[in-house]
Simulated assay, not measured.
Amino acid sequence: MSILEHLGLALVALIANGFSALAGGGAGLLQLPALIFLGLPYPVALATHKIATVALGAGAGLRHVKESTFSPARLGVILGAGVPGVLLGAWLVLEIPPRAGEIALGLLTVALGWYSWRRPQLGQTRRIISDSLNHALIGAAGLFVIGILNGSLASGTGLMVTLWLVRWYGMSYTEAVGYTMVLVGLVWNGAGALMLGTFGTVQWDWLPALLLGSFIGGYLGATLAIRYGNRLVKRAFEVVTVLTGIALLLPVP
C-alpha cells in the first residue's frame, strides 16, 4: 500500500473508533467493511480489525480512567464472565461459518437501538439494583454470552455490553461506556485478538495505521462522551446500534 492509502486507513480507523468510543461500541461498522473493500478476505479482515480495536480500548480507556471511579467488584465480574466467552467465541469463528450468527446479531442489534429509543430516561441516571445471587448470576451469564459473540463476530457486541450494563446493572450511559471501552475494548478484544492472531491470519503491515487511528479516535470519542454526558451518548448509541445492525444484515462482499 502507498503512504496515501495508509493515511486513508488511519482516517477510517479514527472516524470509526471515535464514534465507537462515543456510543459504546460499533467500530466494525466502518472499519471492517473498509478492510474487506480494500481486498482482505473476511477472516483476515476480522482478525486485523480485532487487533486494531485494542488501541481503541487503550485510547478511550486512558481518557475514562482520568475521569471515572471504577468498581473493582464490577470490573472483576465483567472480566471473569466475559473473557472465557471471548476465547470460546474466537475459537468457534475459526471452525464455523459466521454468517448465520451475523444475521441474528444484526436483528438483535437493531432491536437494542429501538429499545433504548423507546425509553427516554434509560441510562440518564444511575439506578439502585438488586444484590441478590440470582441477579448476579444472570448478569454474569449475559456477559458470558456477549463475550462469545464478541470473540466470533464482527461488530455490535460492545454496544450489547453497554446496554446490558445500563439495563441490568443500573449504570448511566456515560458510566457504562467507560466500562465497555476499558474492559471490552482493551481486555476482551485483546483476548480475542490474541486467539485470532495466533491461529488465524493477520495483515500485519496494515496495523500501524489502524492502531494509530484507533487510539486517537478512541481518545477523542471518550472526551466527547465525558464532556457532553448521557443524553448525547444515548443518542449516539441508538444511531450506531441501528446502523451496525443493518450493516451486519447486509451480505459480506
Results as ranks from 00 to 15, higher is better:
Gly113Ile: 01
Ile138Arg: 15
Ile51Gly: 05
Phe199Trp: 14
Leu56Cys: 04
Ala247Tyr: 08
Leu75Met: 15
Ala23Pro: 09
Gly170Phe: 03
Ile216Pro: 10
Tyr115Pro: 00
Val12Glu: 05
Met160Val: 04
Gly18Ser: 01
Ile3Ser: 10
Thr53Gln: 07
Gly8Thr: 00
Tyr219Arg: 13
Trp114Thr: 02
Val65Thr: 05
Gly123Ala: 00
Leu249His: 15
Ala16Thr: 01
Val145Phe: 03
Leu122Glu: 12
Leu22Ile: 05
Gly151Met: 08
Gly123His: 03
Ile146Thr: 11
Gly61Cys: 05
Ser68Cys: 10
Arg227Leu: 10
Phe70Tyr: 01
Val54Pro: 13
Leu210Thr: 11
Pro72Asn: 04
Ser132Thr: 14
Trp168Ile: 15
Val184Met: 13
Val54Lys: 06
Leu107Pro: 06
Gly82Ala: 13
Ala209Asn: 09
Leu149His: 05
Ile96Leu: 14
Arg118Trp: 00
Arg118Met: 06
Tyr115Thr: 10
Asp131Thr: 07
Gly106Leu: 04
Ser214Val: 05
Val252Trp: 11
Ile226Ser: 09
Gln31Val: 03
Leu122Gln: 12
Gln203Pro: 02
Arg63Asp: 13
Ile36Asn: 06
Val166His: 06
Thr162Gly: 08
Leu88Thr: 14
Gly147Met: 02
Gly80Leu: 13
Ser116Lys: 05
Val240Ser: 09
Ser155Ile: 05
Val177Ala: 01
Thr174Met: 14
Ala140Val: 11
Leu186Cys: 13
Leu211Trp: 04
Val145Gln: 01
Leu137Cys: 03
Gly229Ala: 02
Val83Asn: 11
Ser214Ile: 03
Trp91Asp: 04
Tyr169Ile: 08
Gly57Ser: 06
Ala10Asn: 07
Leu30Glu: 00
Leu183Glu: 14
Val83Arg: 07
Val145Gly: 05
Leu75Lys: 03
Thr125Met: 07
Gln124Phe: 00
Gly39Lys: 12
Gly185Asp: 01
Val44Ala: 15
Arg63Trp: 09
Tyr42Leu: 14
Gly101Cys: 05
Val77Leu: 15
Gly197Cys: 12
Leu232Val: 10
Gly158His: 12
Leu11His: 02
Leu30Asn: 04
Gly229Gln: 00
Thr241Pro: 08
Lys234Gln: 15
Leu4Ala: 13
Gly185Gln: 03
Ala141Asn: 06
Ile128His: 04
Leu165Gln: 15
Val44Leu: 09
Ile138Cys: 13
Ala21Leu: 04
Arg119Ile: 10
Gly151Asp: 11
Ser172Val: 06
Leu232Ile: 13
Trp204Ser: 05
Lys234Met: 14
Leu186Met: 15
Gly156Ile: 08
Ser116Ala: 15
Pro208Thr: 14
Thr241Tyr: 10
Gly197Trp: 06
Ala136Asn: 08
Ala23Arg: 02
Leu11Asn: 01
Val77Phe: 09
Ala10Met: 07
Leu143Phe: 10
Trp91Lys: 04
Leu186Val: 07
